[in-house]
């Protein structure tokens, strides 16, 4: 089991020695005990880092933000930046490196193993405890359990009861790519791979049932773009849904600006929402490492993981492709095999 104090010590030493220029990690926020992302640059700030079941965010996002910020300032990164990375966060880094977003030596991966648990899910906590993580005053890992502190005292919950689906289905809770890793690599099977997807596919076997379900989901979308904004893979400078659909530089011509295709209108109507979510899902094919952040942040609870999982499952079964495993391999859609499925072509 990880002693959160070890994380603070590691981070402090990295900053004190000057080995890294910053550490991206978690700290306690102002909302109960819920963790929030933080970027620290001074050794003395390391004491504020935490590691507990509320560390839900995929911090790889902040490395992308950091890279964009530096590019904007025309600065070179210099020393590496350190990141506290769970198994899923580390897989995201693998994909980003596979895509040459940054080089391996530019990132110091301070891995944390989820061991036999994972992070929790607010909705499940709410059902189990009657309150969400933002109302808790304390929470920590303890073996296979979560121990939480509420107004009425401390409670022990078997972790799988309140774990996020993404964690239950996780096959790589250990950050294989790392500079240092806290915690152990433990074999575990908490749920069958793609369990939620399989449940959904069984429950909505027919085409009309599928449509009835997704129609409801897509009509609810308010296009806050949190799913895109929170995704480390959604780093495009140019996104089809933005009103200015690309970065305007000094040498961008008026004709370039005027001739951009408006693929998707800003109206949050069913057709435009589907266009957005389908495009995003397809753009994430072979890249999504199932950190499940898009689904977690959705304010209207659209089960976005299903879309990404569907493509992940197809890629795995039909193309033998698993994202986030190796920096060296070619990406899913830039490679092919002679025996790729052909029977849908008539």
């Amino acid at each position: 089991m990880i002693n959160p104090q070890d994380l603070c010590t590691r981070a402090r030493d990295l900053l004190a020695s000057g080995e890294v220029r910053a550490v991206v990690g978690y700290r306690r926020g102002s909302r109960g005990m819920a963790a929030e992302p933080v970027v620290i640059t001074k050794p003395e700030e390391a004491a504020s880092l935490v590691w507990d079941p509320s560390c839900v965010h995929n911090l790889a996002l902040y490395l992308v933000a950091d890279r964009k910020r530096l590019a904007h300032l025309h600065q070179t990164p210099g020393k590496p930046i350190a990141i506290v990375a769970k198994g899923c966060d580390a897989r995201a880094l693998v994909v980003l490196m596979q895509e040459n977003y940054f080089k391996r030596e530019e990132v110091y991966i301070l891995g944390v193993s989820c061991e036999s648990t994972g992070v929790w899910d607010d909705q499940k906590l709410m059902q189990r405890l009657g309150c969400d993580s933002q109302s808790l005053t304390g929470g920590r890992f303890d073996g296979d359990d979560f121990v939480v502190t509420t107004a009425t005292g401390e409670q022990r919950i078997s972790a799988p009861e309140c774990m996020a689906d993404r964690c239950l289905e996780c096959r790589h809770p250990f950050p294989t790519m790392n500079n240092v890793v806290l915690g152990e690599e433990k074999a575990r099977t908490l749920a069958a791979p793609f369990a939620a997807l399989s449940r959904f596919e069984e429950a909505t076997g027919t085409q009309p049932a599928r449509w009835a379900f997704w129609q409801r989901q897509f009509e609810r979308c308010i296009r806050c773009f949190a799913c895109r904004s929170v995704c480390p893979m959604c780093y495009c400078e140019e996104c089809i849904v933005d009103s200015i659909t690309f970065t305007v530089a000094l040498d961008t011509t008026a004709a370039e600006k005027a001739n951009r295709v408006r693929w998707i209108q800003r109206s949050a109507t069913r057709s435009e929402n589907i266009g957005y979510h389908m495009t995003r899902a397809l753009h994430l094919a072979g890249r999504c490492i199932d950190c499940g952040e898009c689904e977690r942040v959705c304010p209207v609870h659209i089960p976005l993981r299903l879309l990404n999982n569907k493509l992940e499952k197809e890629s795995r079964e039909k193309f033998g492709y698993e994202p986030g495993v190796s920096i060296e391999i070619a990406s899913l859609v830039s490679s092919f095999r002679d025996d790729d499925p052909n029977d849908f072509i008539r």
Partner: peptide, 20 residues
């Protein structure tokens, strides 16, 4: 610093009125 520039805070707000 942690802000991801999504629109949740404004789209869920009872008073935010900005539009395009």
């Amino acid at each position: 610093r942690p802000c991801i520039s999504c629109g949740i805070c404004t789209f869920l707000c009872p008073t935010c009125h900005c539009f395009d």
